[in-house]
């Protein structure tokens, strides 16, 4: 299949369709409104569902309702909108419903700005909503990778019966790059007769299904949380993704960076290499689960004297890096969070 030049936001919408998801509910917000604009035209062409909800809060429950009825479904938003959706996402995690949420991050807190940012790292990986739950979080660094992660996200959400988040910054959404949609990543939804409220007749069953997150009995609630925990542990074992760059050199500094920021770092590493300075990089592609072992191993070599967390946020990922490195090496932070993406020149400095 030949490549097409697409804006990240449009490519994300198309990737969902190509992976077999034909249901989309959303509320407009910069810098990702192009997804809704694209799908408003595209979904009718493929017989899919497009609906602009009245708020992000409502949208998160449209997603919940559709997912609980057994449909493959997704939405896209940006930071403040994700905060509003966090309520519904918490309910979905508790009720074990799969869906894909895309956050094309902008600066915060509050209304912040509309420029690229990675300020929602904590929100996505630690505490998206109330309660004891996690999302599987993937962070693309190019439009092509956003497409592939989108297409992988649906089967992963179904495998774990848990929401999956694609965490991109504004540039991933706004940038145009050549993309192709691998046919091999098109999947059929997993059979959900055991839990989805698809209608007794639909699944020819006498046993009704109930989708809920309410467990008034303390033991039942504890058991549900233990079940969720076991899924997150399984994610840690099976879903870690990362990319290593220049780690076969005798690097003195190990960078950890993700998304657009990691590409800036790659250019900086190349330019330093030309000057005879070796720097390695681990780029987490999944932020939860975090590539802890890989970072620890890369930091624990004798020629590495310092680890640097380079992020478009004020020192969020650094906490996961410190946890991974376990004090074996000092961990420093460099970042910017006003909307400008730090340039390779600044990273070098």
């Amino acid at each position: 299949m030949s490549k097409v030049l697409m804006k990240g936001n449009e490519a994300i919408g198309e990737a969902a369709i190509r992976s077999g998801c034909l249901n989309y509910f959303a509320y407009p917000i910069t810098p990702q409104s192009e997804v809704a604009e694209y799908l408003a035209r595209r979904m009718p062409e493929v017989g899919g569902v497009f609906l602009q909800g009245e708020s992000e809060v409502a949208v998160s429950y449209m997603i919940f309702g559709a997912a609980a009825a057994g449909a493959r479904v997704f939405t896209t938003s940006s930071s403040p909108g994700i905060s509003l959706m966090s309520e519904g996402i918490s309910y979905m995690a508790g009720a074990q419903c799969p869906a894909v949420f895309v956050n094309i991050m902008r600066g915060g807190p509050g209304l912040g700005g509309i420029l690229p940012s990675q300020a929602d790292y904590f929100q996505a990986t630690k505490s998206l909503g109330h309660g004891d739950f996690r999302l599987l979080v993937m962070a693309p660094a190019s439009v092509q990778e956003a497409v592939e992660m989108m297409m992988d996200a649906f089967p992963l959400a179904e495998k774990y019966r848990n929401p999956v988040m694609i965490l991109g910054d504004g540039l991933i959404g706004q940038m145009m790059e050549p993309v192709e949609f691998p046919d091999s990543k098109k999947t059929e939804p997993l059979n959900n007769d055991a839990w989805a409220t698809s209608g007794l007749d639909t699944r020819k069953s006498d046993t009704r299904n109930l989708v809920k997150s309410l467990f008034l009995d303390p033991e039942a609630l504890n058991n549900n949380n233990l079940l969720l925990k076991s899924k997150y542990e399984q994610m840690k074992r099976e879903e870690v993704r990362f990319e290593a760059y220049n780690t076969d050199s005798a690097y003195n500094v190990l960078i950890v960076s993700y998304g657009t920021m990691s590409r800036v770092c790659r250019t900086a590493i190349d330019s330093m290499k030309a000057d005879g300075i070796e720097v390695g990089m681990i780029r987490p592609q999944t932020l939860f689960p975090f590539p802890e072992d890989q970072i620890r191993a890369a930091a624990d070599v004798t020629h590495c004297s310092v680890v640097a967390s380079i992020e478009m946020s004020m020192g969020q990922m650094i906490e996961d890096i410190e946890r991974s490195v376990q004090g074996k090496k000092p961990v420093k932070w460099f970042g910017k969070c006003g909307g400008d993406v730090p340039t390779p020149e600044e990273v070098v400095a």
Binding site: G53, V59, Y61, M62, G65, A67, A68, L200, L210, K212
Partner: peptide, 23 residues
């Protein structure tokens, strides 16, 4: 005795919308 979903406070119409749109 039929299938049921449980909503958050006030959000049942949004959930119903989600179901009816896809099914």
């Amino acid at each position: 005795t039929f299938d049921f979903q449980e909503a958050a406070h006030g959000r049942a119409p949004a959930m119903a919308t989600g179901i009816k749109r896809v099914r």
